[in-house]
Nucleic acid binder design. Structure first.
Length: 403
DNA sequence: CCTCCACAGGAAGCGCAGGAGT
DNA sequence: ACTCCTGCGCTTCCTGTGGAGG
C-alpha cells in the first residue's frame, strides 16, 4: 500500500467519498480481518502449511493442534494458511473442502455436525436427527464423493469443557477409517492445559503435530499496529505515542494483538468524532474506558431476569455477604414482585456465572465451625448497574428503591 | 484429632420448545 | 397426528470439604 507522504489520487477521492478524515480502510482494524502478511508468525505458518500440504497430493494430512492465548494470532494464521491452500487447491484434481467452525459460537455437538454438513453440502436438518445419523451422513458423503476435507475447530477447549471429547474421538476415528477421501482436524485452543482433559487415544490421534503460539512482545505489537495502520488509516494520522500506548496497554497482561487492534480502532472512532485529524494518546485512554463500560453494559442488559435479581440482591445486602444471605434477600425480592423463586442450587450457579462475567467477585472461603461459603462482592461501579436496571420494565421500581 | 457447619458443586432427570421424518 | 431427537433451564438428591471450636 501507499506509505509515502503524498496521498495518491484515489486516496483523496476515497476520503471525499467516505467522509472519513482518518480511516482509509476501517476493516483492517477489525478483529476478524486476516492480513495477507502476518508478522512474527513465519515459523507457525510454515509448520501448519507443511502438515497440511499432503492434501494437495491427495494424501491425508496429519491432525494438528494450535496452542496459544487469546490474540496471539492463531485464528488469523490458520485462516491465512487456509486461504493459500484454497488457492493452491484450484490447480489440483482432488476436491478439497475446508470448513472453519468456531466451537464457542457453535456450542453443541449437533450444531457442529450441522455446520460441517452445510459446508460439505450434506443435507442435515437444523434439528431432528440423532448425532449418529448426522455423522454417518457426513462420512458417507466424504467417502462417496472422495472429498478431502479439513475441519478447523476454533476454541476447541470450549467444546471439550462443555461436552467432553466424545465428538473429537468420533472425528479422529472417522479420519482413520475412511478408505477414500479424508477428514483431518485442526484444533485451536486458548487453553494450554487443554490436553489434560482429553482421552489418551484422542491425544495421540489429534495432536500428531502441535504448534505453539507465544504471546507478542510490546515491540512486536507495535510493529503489528504500525503495519495495520498503514493499511487502515491515512498516512500520518496516528501519533507514535498513541501506538505505543495501545501496544503497552494490550501487552501489559499478555501480548494480545486483538485487544491492541480493537483499542486502536475505537481510539480512531473517538478521534474522528472529535474531528481530530490525528489519533493521540488521550483518545486511546478514552477508548479504554469506553471499551470497559460497553462490555459491562452489554453483559448487564443481556442478563436473564433471575441473574439480574441476584445482582440486585447483592446490592441490597452489603458487601462480603454469603450465598445464604444473598439467597434470602433474593427470595424476598421475588416475592415482592410476584415472581417464582428458584432454588438455592440454581442461584449458586447464577452467582458463579456473574463471577465469570466479572460483574461480581465470589470467593469460596471456609469459616471453620461456621461453614464453607462464598464471600460475594460487586466488582463494578454500582452506579452503572443502577443506571442500566432502572430502565428495566420489571426491575426499574426495585432498582430505584435502592439506598 | 475429630466434628460438624454451610455451603460447593457433580449427577441425573424432568418438562418444555422446536423441528424432522413418517 | 404421532414419534423421536436435542438443547435448555431448572429441580432434586447427593457427596465433598476447610478449618474453628470442642
Amino acid at each position: 500500500m501507499n506509505s509515502n507522504n503524498k496521498p495518491a489520487l484515489n486516496e483523496i477521492f476515497e476520503k471525499a467519498l467516505s467522509g472519513s478524515k482518518l480511516f482509509l480502510k476501517r476493516e483492517a482494524l477489525s478483529f476478524d480481518y486476516v492480513p495477507n502478511k502476518l508478522l512474527f508468525r513465519e515459523n507457525q505458518i510454515n509448520l501448519i502449511a507443511e502438515s497440511l500440504s499432503p492434501i494437495l497430493r491427495g494424501a491425508k494430512p496429519s491432525n494438528l493442534i494450535l496452542y496459544g492465548q487469546t490474540g496471539t494470532g492463531k485464528t488469523a494464521t490458520a485462516k491465512n494458511v487456509i486461504n493459500a491452500l484454497r488457492n493452491a487447491s484450484d490447480k489440483t484434481s482432488y476436491e478439497i473442502k475446508l470448513c472453519y467452525i468456531n466451537a464457542r459460537i457453535t456450542g453443541t455437538e449437533y450444531r457442529l455436525l450441522y455446520e460441517l454438513g452445510r459446508e460439505l453440502k450434506v443435507n442435515i436438518p437444523f434439528t431432528g436427527l440423532s448425532i449418529a445419523e448426522a455423522s454417518s451422513r457426513i462420512i458417507e458423503e466424504i467417502r462417496d464423493k472422495k472429498l478431502f476435507s479439513i475441519l478447523i475447530l476454533d476454541e476447541i477447549d470450549f467444546l471439550v469443557k462443555q461436552h467432553g471429547d466424545k465428538i473429537l474421538y468420533e472425528f479422529t476415528r472417522v479420519g482413520e477409517r475412511l478408505s477414500t477421501g479424508s477428514l483431518s482436524m485442526v484444533g485451536i485452543s486458548n487453553d494450554l492445559r487443554f490436553k489434560e482433559l482429553l482421552d489418551p487415544r484422542v491425544i495421540s490421534s489429534l495432536s500428531e503435530e502441535e504448534v505453539v503460539f507465544t504471546p507478542y512482545s510490546s515491540t512486536e505489537l507495535k510493529s503489528i499496529l504500525e503495519e495495520r495502520t498503514s493499511i487502515a488509516l491515512y498516512p500520518d494520522s496516528v501519533s507514535t505515542g498513541a501506538i505505543s500506548l495501545c501496544a503497552g496497554l494490550a501487552g501489559s497482561e499478555h501480548g494480545d494483538a486483538r485487544r491492541a487492534v480493537d483499542l486502536l480502532r475505537i481510539s480512531g472512532e473517538i478521534a474522528e468524532r472529535e474531528n481530530s485529524l490525528k489519533i493521540e494518546e488521550n483518545h486511546v485512554r478514552t477508548a479504554l474506558k469506553r471499551i470497559e463500560q460497553d462490555r459491562v453494559n452489554d453483559s448487564l442488559t443481556s442478563l436473564p431476569i433471575h441473574a439480574k435479581l441476584v445482582l440486585l440482591s447483592i446490592l441490597f445486602t452489603s458487601n462480603n455477604k454469603s450465598t445464604g444471605e444473598i439467597y434470602n434477600e433474593y427470595s424476598t425480592l421475588t416475592n415482592k414482585c410476584g415472581m417464582e423463586t428458584l432454588t438455592q442450587r440454581r442461584i449458586s450457579t447464577l452467582i458463579n456465572e456473574l463471577d465469570l462475567l466479572g460483574l461480581i467477585s465470589a470467593k469460596t472461603i471456609s469459616q471453620g465451625r461456621y461453614g464453607r461459603t462464598k464471600k460475594i462482592t460487586v466488582s463494578i461501579q454500582i452506579s452503572l448497574i443502577k443506571e442500566t436496571f432502572s430502565k428495566d420494565p420489571i426491575l426499574g421500581e426495585i432498582t430505584n428503591s435502592l439506598p
